[in-house]
Design a protein around this nucleic acid. Structure first.
Lengths: 237, 237
DNA sequence: ACATGGACTGAATACTCGTTCAGTAGCGAA
DNA sequence: TTCGCTACTGAACGAGTATTCAGTCCATGT
């Protein structure tokens, strides 16, 4: 493969590769938008083509069939989780701090693409068995990053004995909850506040007594909010 | 309306009412089964009729259209929540005990109808706005039962200050998690164990220091399990 | 100027599925 | 037996959609 002075590949096949990824992004972005509004089944391929500003035929030039459009959309979000969570933990060594940073990063991705996060729950049953396995593997991998920190925290004694696997899935679930139950969480005006509230709820039951003071900043960091939220929140449907 | 000696209504219109509810149950049960396997969109009305052992026309005699089949299925589960949760709390007066009983009852319903519990997440976007409002109202009402006990617990001083609304939704979410993430929770062989584990996780961060001893039975009631589960659980996808 | 080939188009194809309704079956009353 | 009525049936209809492919367009090389 030819390369230019900066190491970028050049030549016809590089052009093709660039066009392919540009087209796929066009399609995935449009599909994410439409599926978020209408769902997978109610999004017709011609509507997708229109939204993406291309023709139906072109969609089929870059993706095999409708199911693979869905898979591409789901992988796109899950890949973002898998990239952002470790990125947020880089440079931190303390397990509890790494856990907190990872969780908040996960939550940020969910917040940035709430519709897409919901799609993983709504539509993954429409995938073939093989595609579903891919999606599940990605989900397990990301949760695994949190589980590892929980185990490390237990090892250093900062965290009480607990089932890291279970608590890891709880954290994942609470992050997804921001998308799944967003309508009911109106009292929390932004993700940051929600994230710190949930982190404190979880860590409060998890931190060893000896470590409580050290990580006090994670516990009720916004002492005023819960009461405020409780007063505001009438659970408007 | 005519009634017999035991107060049951009799006569032609009672027969009709009985037949209607029998047929609706037939249809809802068959639909729950099929939608659990294939999803709402991939379940054809003729397949539903076949599964229920009746003809297509009969389905339309008892339900207006396909969407109302979905609504009937979702309402069926949500009504069960709304019935079982208060039933489990009857006779208990202590808010923490009532909370625990309500949560475990909720979880039992989820466990008994896991497929249907998942449907509420998967398919409710296919409902009309009005039907969606009904479903949401039922969900809010049931979570409200837990929220009320959380508030009561705060009032008696058994629970630390917290946002009852948020923790209520967390509990709801953790109950749904048993259905949504069931594949990842294999280490917990039955709902009871899972329920007590989650209850202890939540209460551990929620109980006021003064109340910890009193409700010790809820905290790590199966001290051995977490470690066991952690050892078993490889997160098989 | 012309030829070549890849990218793109969108009408045509070949379905499936929700819904209806003319007709059948069964049953109690006269 | 015959009538009347209700519950039930399932073929037929119409709307809609995933996928294909014959043809157009355009950038490039000769």
């Amino acid at each position: 493969m030819e390369r230019d002075a900066t190491g970028m590949t050049v030549g016809p096949e590089a052009i093709r590769a660039a066009r392919t990824s540009w087209r796929r992004r066009q399609i995935v972005d449009a599909a994410t938008r439409l599926m978020g509004e209408q769902g997978y089944h109610d999004m017709s391929v011609s509507a997708l083509a229109r939204e993406a500003g291309i023709s139906v035929g072109t969609v089929y030039q870059y993706l095999d069939n409708k199911e693979s459009i869905l898979l591409a959309v789901l992988e796109d979000v899950l890949d973002t989780y898998a990239a952002e969570v470790p990125a947020a933990m880089v440079g931190l060594v303390d397990p509890v701090e790494r856990l907190a940073a990872g969780f908040l990063a996960y939550l940020d991705v969910v917040d940035g693409r709430r519709a897409a996060a919901v799609l993983a729950y709504r539509e993954s049953h429409s995938l073939s068995r093989a595609a579903l396995q891919r999606v599940i593997a990605l989900e397990v991998a990301t949760t695994g990053l949190l589980v590892a920190e929980l185990r490390a925290g237990s090892a250093t004694g900062a965290l009480r004995a607990h089932d890291a696997e279970l608590v890891g899935w709880n954290l994942t679930m609470l992050a997804h909850m921001w998308a799944l139950k967003h309508r009911h969480l109106g009292a929390y005006r932004d993700v940051g506040v929600y994230g710190r509230a949930q982190l404190s709820t979880v860590l409060c039951g998890l931190l060893a007594d000896a470590a409580r003071e050290r990580y006090g900043s994670f516990l009720e960091p916004t002492g005023a909010l819960p009461a405020q939220a409780a007063r505001r929140g009438g659970g408007s449907p």
